[in-house]
Amino acid sequence: MDAVGSAELGRSGARRELTPAEAQQMSRKVHQVELAISLVLRVGVVASVVVIAVGLGLMFAHHGSYVALRGPSTYRALTSASTSFPHSFAALGHALALGEGRGVVVLGVLILILTPVLRVAVGVVSFVYEKDAPMALVTLFVLVVLVGSFFLAGV
């Protein structure tokens, strides 16, 4: 087991062992990638929450009866199988042009959905910058599958 332990990096398909200086530089680059990805996630999250909050505000401002704590207005009408709301880009654009709150909320939810996709894209760029070709190819594959899934869905 000792031989395996000491030669562990040299065997089993590992790439060349790094010198301490290279290793330090590598770890600094990796940390930069982590900060970049963390930043993308935070910006996406904050942007979507703000847009969703504005949308909810508009929704309640336009429909006074929604705001009452008691009254004839019920959420059931808004959450049944026959409720209408934008679920295509054309309908979303139309709702946004009219300043409808629900359109703004859907826009915020779309920002939220696209945040992980953007995160993967930033991952590809970061690994290219790190000159880590295998990881860059792997993340590029994930990005292609993700973008492909949106096209196959017919968004």
Partner: peptide
């Protein structure tokens, strides 16, 4: 998040993402 995003497009187009439910859930 990435796994879910891969099927989120389908859910959006099928009209399964209702704003009045999604807003409080997301926030």
């Amino acid at each position: 998040g990435v796994t879910a995003a891969a099927s989120a497009g389908v859910y959006f187009v099928r009209g399964q993402i209702d704003p009045i439910i999604a807003a409080p859930v997301a926030a």
